[in-house]
């Protein structure tokens, strides 16, 4: 068979002319079925540049780590504040850079892991500063924040975007409730009077969250809002 455009003779393996891309076709000539020269659509899993990129990020994070370590240890030969900085850098790495290692990072696993790291860091700060507020305030607040965030992420990830308004509305109301819990814990731990500041965000967030849930339930109202607010 010859290419009708460039005139080159084509092997029976060719479906398109390799020189001009024209589809091989002849209305009156049947072609013998030939084995393709190479298997179709069998591509190697190429090693992407991800590893190199991740390695470069580690080096980038190592730089301030080493610098602050030297700055801390240089004057008196003792480590004073390096732990706080190091913890912060590690947390920043875990939050922003660590997920890059994965081709498809799973937030349902990564977010709880990150919260575990944050809680460990807060515990370190509490112990290093001789505080006693970790178990009474920091841990319940952190666990509350972790529970809300993990639930939000898991529902969004697992339901693949279905019921977004319900989930986000519920989360906003839960954040309001967390505010109330924070004030209550502060009053209890630090013996300050209850002034009720947490009620303001609670009411605002509950109204906004409730509105989202209402919109999720009411299609007509939702479409009306969409019409008014589209951009």
């Amino acid at each position: 068979m010859y290419c009708i455009k460039c005139g080159v003779r084509l092997a029976d393996t060719e479906k398109k002319c390799p020189l001009c891309g024209t589809t091989v076709y002849h209305p009156e000539m049947a072609r013998e079925a030939a084995e393709p020269l190479y298997p179709e659509k069998r591509m190697p899993t190429t090693a992407s540049g991800r590893k190199v990129f991740c390695g470069a990020i580690i080096i980038l994070f190592m730089f301030p780590l080493v610098l602050t370590f030297l700055s801390d240890i240089w004057p008196d030969g003792q480590i004073d504040w390096f732990g706080f900085v190091a913890g912060g850098i590690v947390l920043a790495y875990l939050t922003f850079a660590f997920p890059v290692w994965f081709e498809k990072p799973n937030p349902v696993i990564l977010v709880p892991c990150n919260f575990a790291a944050y809680i460990a860091y807060i515990l370190y700060v509490c112990l290093a500063t001789g505080g006693s507020w970790f178990f009474s305030v920091a841990l319940p607040v952190s666990l509350g924040a972790a529970a809300i965030t993990c639930t939000l992420v898991s529902l969004l990830y697992c339901l693949k975007g279905k019921g977004r308004l319900y989930i986000i509305g519920g989360t906003i109301i839960a954040i309001g409730a967390l505010m109330l819990m924070i004030e209550w814990l502060i009053v209890k731990e630090f013996s300050v009077p209850f002034v009720g500041w947490s009620l303001y965000p609670l009411i605002t967030l509950a109204l906004f969250g409730g509105l989202l849930i209402y919109l999720a339930m009411n299609r007509v109202a939702r479409e009306k809002i969409e019409r008014k607010l589209f951009f």
Partner: peptide, 27 residues
């Protein structure tokens, strides 16, 4: 772009040399 291959073929064709072409292009 298979530009060089096309020119190579055209030179051979002008010299009267029959050529059969095959590739791994597939679909």
């Amino acid at each position: 772009e298979p530009a060089l291959e096309r020119h190579f073929f055209e030179v051979l064709h002008a010299l009267g040399l029959p050529v059969t072409v095959e590739s791994n292009r597939n679909e």
